[in-house]
């Protein structure tokens, strides 16, 4: 268990704390991490990757002082190890051009506009993680208690 990471990237500490609090109930099955910049995120992912942990979901802000969120999503999408990572933008300030870029080249899976409400954020995270687990994990049973039960049970049923 805890083979997968959920990573939140935002330059504002309060936002990171709020997101982590919203998705705290997943901490029993996922490693929840926060990074204040893309550089820090990159370092974290690399570190975990050495320990065999995979990045399942990234919740990324776009407008940050140094590197921009969308560029990092594109980078993740071009990397074999993180191509399957579910990619979510959690931002208030991505323009049309960057958003299109995120969809086309960054493999964006979902866009959450700031401000968000806790419940729907959790719903999106569960939904994205369920998709990730269904595609990348053999042992679905372990995730029934925290992710989308119906989708996981149906998958177990279909796989015999």
């Amino acid at each position: 268990m805890e083979d997968y990471i959920v990573l939140c990237i935002d330059d504002e500490r309060e936002i990171l704390d709020a997101v982590l609090q919203d998705i705290d109930s997943l901490s029993s099955h996922f490693i929840l991490e926060a990074a204040e910049s893309v550089a820090e995120a990159r370092e974290l992912v690399e570190e975990y990757s050495l320990a065999g942990k995979k990045l399942a979901l990234v919740l990324c802000d776009h407008l940050m002082p140094e590197e921009k969120g969308v560029d990092y999503l594109v980078e993740l999408n071009q990397n074999d190890e993180t191509r399957n990572t579910r990619k979510v933008l959690l931002t208030g300030q991505a323009g049309l051009e960057q958003t299109v870029d995120a969809v086309n080249r960054g493999g964006l899976d979902y866009y959450i506009a700031k401000p968000w409400d806790s419940e729907s954020l959790m719903q999106v995270v569960i939904d994205q993680l369920t998709t990730y687990i269904l595609r990348n994990e053999e042992n679905l049973m372990d995730y029934i208690s925290v992710l989308d039960q119906e989708r996981l049970l149906n998958a177990i049923h279909e796989s015999g």
Binding site: Q149, E150, L153, N154, A155, I156, H157, E158, S159, G160
Partner: peptide
């Protein structure tokens, strides 16, 4: 006739909601 696991998954998916 089906595996006990697949059967349980099917029925729990119906029942859980």
């Amino acid at each position: 006739f089906m595996s006990n696991t697949a059967t349980t998954a099917l029925m729990l998916a119906i029942l859980a909601p």
